[in-house]
């Protein structure tokens, strides 16, 4: 800042006493057009209505909890914790144990993760780090198209295309080569746990890969450049500069996929075989919590039967809530609270 005086600019300020005549005559305006009293009531009403809508979302969740808790009351009092630990599901004798369904849900979901995670992360890495820009949009659009296909259509395809392939080619091959593990034994029906896991995997790939992609894109560019500058190959850059920094977000994406797999109903119901048994072999038929609801809810005649089914619904609800909340927090920790662009 220079300290010596700057010559004052010359001003010809308008003189308040005389004023200056305008060149263009402004047309006369009348008194304010809108001079009536303004009521504050409509504003308050509107704000109230919008608040109502917002809190209605919370109300919906509360309503879900209420319905499930009330509905499952009978079964809870009849069986207590034993409900989740026994595997006898017998409507004729009014004995209900949910273990086979819990087992089937967990195994089919975990199996789907084993298949879907490497594929989804691979796709996400390819799209964000390797793909030419021109291909990027098409690839992400196509993978998202997978998410637009309804569950029942996946099921239809699985019954008539996937299951025969499994029965005729995949299962005999797996039985021969990996039968010794005990996971791939028994007659190759096609239908069963393996088919459910595969169709679930196909269904959750779009979710996991699109969120992973989102997480990868927020990894700052300088992390990549830092590793490249050390003379790393591209893969080393991806491994050290990108994947390591996005770890928590990718785990979140995977858990979100798990949440979807746990609650998925139609496609699984159509191919899992629907038998409440716990078997080690993935060729064997199974049953999930969601599919027993789909199959038996409308046929449940006794009060206790219906209540037991609702209790399965409650358990499914609680598990998916916990899983989803966990996943959201992990994704947020990476994207720092930016609203997710993916409507999952």
């Amino acid at each position: 800042m220079s300290n010596h005086a700057v010559p004052r600019p010359r001003f010809e300020a308008p003189d308040p006493e005389h004023g200056t005549k305008a060149a263009l005559k402004i047309e006369d305006t009348t008194a304010p057009l809108l001079d009536g009293k303004v009521s504050e009531v409509p504003d308050a009403l509107f704000a109230g209505a919008m608040r109502f809508c917002g809190f209605a979302v919370v109300g919906l969740l509360a309503l879900i909890v209420y319905q499930l808790v009330i509905g499952s009351n009978l079964s809870w009092h009849a069986f207590g914790w034993k409900f989740f630990g026994t595997s006898d599901w017998n409507p004729v004798e009014d004995q209900y144990g949910a273990l086979p369904f819990i087992y089937g849900t967990l195994v089919s979901s975990l199996l789907s993760l084993v298949i879907a995670v490497p594929l989804s992360v691979g796709v996400a890495v390819f799209i964000t780090e390797m793909s030419p820009v021109s291909l990027r949009g098409i690839l992400s659009f196509t993978t998202e198209l997978l998410a637009a296909i309804p569950s029942v259509v996946y099921g239809l395809w699985a019954i008539f295309v996937l299951v025969p392939i499994l029965r005729l080619y995949v299962q005999p091959f797996l039985g021969k080569t990996l039968g010794w593990t005990g996971l791939f034994t028994g007659p190759p029906y096609g239908i069963g746990m393996l088919a459910a896991g595969i169709i679930l995997a196909i269904m959750i790939i779009p979710i996991i890969s699109s969120i992973t992609r989102e997480v990868l894109t927020v990894v700052p560019q300088h992390q990549r450049e830092g590793v490249l500058a050390l003379g790393a190959t591209r893969w080393e850059m991806i491994r050290m500069g990108v994947l390591r920094n996005a770890r928590a977000g990718i785990v979140g994406a995977v858990i979100l996929g798990l949440g979807r797999a746990l609650g998925e109903t139609m496609a699984v119901t159509m191919v899992i075989g629907n038998r409440p048994e716990i078997a080690k072999s993935l060729f064997a038929p199974g049953y999930t919590m969601a599919s027993v609801l789909a199959n038996e809810f409308t046929e449940a005649t006794g009060d206790l039967y219906l209540s037991a089914l609702i209790e399965i619904g409650l358990a499914l609800f609680l598990v998916t809530i916990v899983v989803n909340a966990l996943a959201r927090l992990m994704v947020w920790s990476v994207t720092r609270g930016q609203p997710s662009k993916t409507v999952a």
């Binding site: 109903t265 809810f297 609800f317 998916t320 809530i321 989803n324």
Partner: peptide, 24 residues
């Protein structure tokens, strides 16, 4: 709170929503 709840609601399995509508 509403934001969090609506994200949670988004993850509720559709079959469970069916049970609720059945009851309602």
């Amino acid at each position: 709170a509403v934001r969090f709840v609506s994200d949670v609601l988004n993850g509720v399995p559709s079959i469970v929503i069916g049970i609720v509508a059945y009851g309602l």
